[in-house]
Design a binder for these strands. Sequence first.
DNA 1: GGGCCGCTTCGGCGGCGCGCGAAGCCGCAC
DNA 2: GTGCGGCTTCGCGCGCCGCCGAAGCGGCCC
Lengths: 238, 238
Amino acid sequence: MPSLAGFTATAALLADPARSAMLHALLGGEALTAGELARIAGIAPPTASGHLAQLLAGGLVAVHRQGRHRYHRLASEEVAAALEALGCLAALADGAAPRRRAWPHGEAFRTARLCYDHLAGRLGVGLHARLTAGAWLVPAPGGWRLSGEGAQRLAALGLDLDAARRARRFACDCMDWSERRPHLAGGLGRALAQALLRQGWLRRAAPRADDPFARRRLAPTPEGARVLREAFGLDLAA
Amino acid sequence: MPSLAGFTATAALLADPARSAMLHALLGGEALTAGELARIAGIAPPTASGHLAQLLAGGLVAVHRQGRHRYHRLASEEVAAALEALGCLAALADGAAPRRRAWPHGEAFRTARLCYDHLAGRLGVGLHARLTAGAWLVPAPGGWRLSGEGAQRLAALGLDLDAARRARRFACDCMDWSERRPHLAGGLGRALAQALLRQGWLRRAAPRADDPFARRRLAPTPEGARVLREAFGLDLAA
DNA sequence: GGGCCGCTTCGGCGGCGCGCGAAGCCGCAC
DNA sequence: GTGCGGCTTCGCGCGCCGCCGAAGCGGCCC
């Protein structure tokens, strides 16, 4: 059973406007740099740095260095769950109708979504697992490279592999926030997402003013579900 | 979507040791007076009064006057959910094993438990509903009184109705925290709980040092489940 | 009615922590 | 190497909030 001190310390981390603005920005699942988070929270970089250090020490965010940038993301799904529960409570107190999910990042968001320009959610994680398990992708310095069979089969799905190879990184892992396992980023991840969207196998949700994350939500079309099952053995309903 | 200000205001309510001690004390589902909560939190009555006013304004607790006492309870199940989610998070940050339920007031606790000396949870609420719907209990000033048939059938179950009538209040409602509907309190509620326990139809869980609420948890024996079904049409599994 | 008791309101004190600017560190680009 | 830009550490000021004692209000009991 957690100590009361730990409980209040964690709650205190959420009780500051700047910190909670940062956390809510990270709810989308993308990793953001300290500077971006400072701008979002409307505070100076030194202040943001201090807040992020606290969130890190409190285990609410995790950090990931990349060059001179430091990317921050939510540390675990429990953080998102706590934010959601508290948000639900605050909405009730505001006199809002007693809705159960105050945040729109529910189950639908975890099935398939865009992370930057590549695929995330169960779809992204499942593809990563399938491509590596089937040796379509094989380890390479700094990430992955395509095997001969992998290149052939992905090209057959309409991926622009030449464009993918021109990217700064061809294929690397990106930690999936909701699944806690990696999905595929880099030029290949981008090419994969573009191909599935271009062929009409995935469809983007319509942007909504009241939901800044709607534009990143994805859903497979019936035809797309068939292709994913046949080509990769993926069943998103599972 | 709730405002960020509301979110931080709610989180701030949880970020104080005294307030969160009070809320965790209320997690058991009993309504407690301001004085009891002050003692639990280890603060002076005026300080507790201020905190309770804040929790009330923030919609986290509800209050219920009875004579010169003011009984406080959690305002909604969402409050308990948020406390649990945050507690889970704090336990993770404390380096604990990533358990999912940090608080033991899960489903089992909602099935059947003692509230002071009477029955609560689905069992208590179900009995209340059955007794009133079947006109075993009929409205009376300040609560309920037994109808002739009600008295006969409850006496047949072994209730000490004379002792019940000697209580300050014979039968009145007590709001059930987990079910949001009333269960039966007063002398009759006490007599009911005692009879079911004495006959071995309900069994109390063993006290546990790491779980202050274990001693209030109840479970029907197989024989008890049969009696509850036959006498009241209650099926706790439902 | 008198006294007690539970609870609240008021006023003043003290400390935690949020905020920023200035300065320093480090990786990258030219 | 040199310069730039992202980020952190340091130091200080200020405001918010928790804390209590004293006093006031209202219900209850003898």
